[in-house]
Design a protein around this nucleic acid. Structure first.
Length: 481
RNA sequence: GGCGGUAUCGUCUAGGGGACUAGGACACGGCCCUCUCAAGGCUGGAACACGGGUUCGAAUCCCGUUACCGCUACCA
């Protein structure tokens, strides 16, 4: 038995950005480690030098940090462990679980093409394993390059997956796979096993797409004389069309959602529900609750479809419910980036604005867009709402004039007084209790569109001077024929 | 093709032999609230892939079929 403290890892390869599927895998590993007091480690699988970039590595770190998934020990860079990988491969050659293969890539490709052309499937025929010792010695001495292949034993390989049940592979279906390239660098499966052993990983939790690598890896653990970790294979995440989530589906990188105005807490909550359910119809969960409730029993076997609509809804819930100060810390930078100067406003005014907008927004970006009319002196009047609510220009102009006069005559600028005055205007103009006939044209004048918080809240937010000024400019715009 | 995995409303899921006229959430429709938009409340439509078993009884167990997904590199 391995250590009693669970040790898990997330092992992305830095060949792109942190994919939401990777983020979800990382989250589950992290939750498990937190729940059982274990360690969560990060390993960057950068052995493919052609595709790995430092930029991707940074993107992975940023994505992890944004999601709030802190790893416990120093990041392991797989590329730094090449010597150990090679040594492990050589150990297998020494203990006879691996052998030299002198076949070239070209020969192999040719035989594979032949087999496929004949309608069959190619599997390495072990010809190099039949070479006698003298011949092997002769080739090695002559400097013929070779790879190291693992000699797959008879029988079958199985394990009890924490997500699925027992999964078994007949060994006859697995070819003698290469573990060490001719240039002495390790193949993925060897590097993973070698590192997982060195990192003392006790539970390998990863995507479903690694199921067929698992029997090979189990054989390598055995060949290296190491204890087996547990395995848990998480379902994939698909796009709305049921295909593996990819660029075609729009945003697939964790960072994309950050830039779309999604909150990390909402993202975590949403991702947790993709492939896992705590039961009891629980959906909204704080991170602490997630850790508390996390259980591999609730893991799903079926691929999950990423539903942006639900993510947005959930993000809206977070926006509505989070403490106002925390909300400010997330929205203020976004407003500044949009050129809206929060620092010129009083804290009370800003709080009121956010309280009014948070219930109407699903993303931080939406809040920024809705906040725009409350900053600066001028508003941009949108064509649609203008055409709709100022259709009869003279009528609109007289409504706005009456409203302006009534409001201008007020000694105070309080919602209750303003409402009383305007309802009076509505009656005077013959609209009776249909004060909305006034409010919509007003709204267009005040914020440039026909959607906003309550009209009195808008008036209060804008303040007397700006409200009156905007009404004035609307009136003159309407009089311009 | 071979091997492996999976299969409950459009989507995320609850369900692990009788509590199922299959529950919740998102989305969608209706109603209420109402100055617009939200939020909120109420409400409607919407699923056990198919076929065989096992059993007194199956969404739940077994087998087959189908569909989908993954793997099948000197990629990771």
């Amino acid at each position: 038995m391995a250590s009693s403290v669970p040790r898990l890892r997330f092992a992305p390869s830095p060949t792109g950005y942190l994919h939401v599927g990777g983020g979800r895998t990382a989250l589950f590993n992290w939750l498990y480690a937190k729940k059982y007091g274990g360690q969560f480690l990060l390993r960057v699988e950068d052995t493919d030098k052609a595709r790995s970039t430092d930029e991707s590595t940074r993107a992975i770190f940023e994505g992890m940090e944004w999601l709030g998934l802190q790893w416990d020990e120093e990041v392991v860079h797989q590329g730094a462990n090449l010597e150990r990988h090679r040594a492990d491969a050589l150990r297998m050659l020494a203990n006879d679980t691996a052998y030299r293969c002198f076949c070239t890539q070209e020969e192999l490709a040719g035989r594979r093409a032949e087999a496929e052309a004949a309608g069959g499937s190619f599997k390495y025929d072990r010809r190099c394993d039949r070479l006698d010792a003298a011949e092997i010695r002769r080739r090695v001495d002559a400097g013929v390059p070779f790879t190291l292949r693992f000699r797959v034993p008879e029988g079958s390989t199985s394990w009890d997956d924490l997500v699925h049940e027992t999964i078994a592979f007949p060994n006859k279906d697995i070819e003698d796979f290469i573990v060490l390239r001719a240039d002495g660098t390790p193949i993925y499966n060897l590097a993973v096993v070698s590192d997982d052993i060195a990192m003392r990983i006790t539970l390998v939790m990863r995507g479903d797409d690694h199921i067929s690598n698992t029997p090979k890896q189990i054989m390598l653990y055995r060949a290296l004389g190491a204890d087996l970790p547990g395995f848990a294979h998480l379902p994939m995440i698909h796009g709305m069309d049921g295909k593996k989530l990819s660029k075609r589906h729009g945003a697939t990188a964790v960072g994309d959602y950050q830039h779309l105005g999604i909150l990390p807490g909402a993202m975590r909550n949403f991702l947790a529900l993709l492939g896992w359910a705590p039961g009891n119809d629980i959906e909204m969960m704080s991170t602490a609750q997630m850790i508390e409730l996390f259980d591999t029993k609730g893991l799903q076997r079926k691929a999950a479809v990423f539903d942006m609509k639900k993510l947005e809804w959930m993000n809206g819930q977070y926006l509505m419910q989070m403490p106002i100060d925390e909300l400010k810390s997330r929205v203020t930078p976004a407003l500044s980036a949009a050129g809206l100067a929060v620092e010129d406003q009083s804290d009370a005014w800003y709080s009121t604005l956010l309280e009014l907008l948070r219930v109407r927004s699903r993303t931080v970006d939406e809040m920024v867009a809705q906040a725009r009319p409350y900053f600066g002196d001028a508003v941009e009047i949108q064509a649609g709402p203008m055409a709709k609510h100022w259709k009869d220009r003279p009528a609109a102009a007289s409504i706005l004039s009456a409203v302006r006069d009534a409001l201008g005559a007020l000694g105070t600028w309080e919602p209750a007084t303003m409402e009383e005055a305007l309802r009076g205007v509505a009656v005077a103009l013959g609209y009776g209790d249909k004060a909305g006939k006034l409010f919509q044209p007003m709204r267009v004048a005040l914020v440039g569109t026909d959607v906003s918080p309550g009209i009195f809240e808008v008036l209060e937010l804008l303040g007397r001077d700006r409200s009156l000024a905007r009404l004035d400019s609307a009136i003159s715009l309407l009089s311009l024929n």
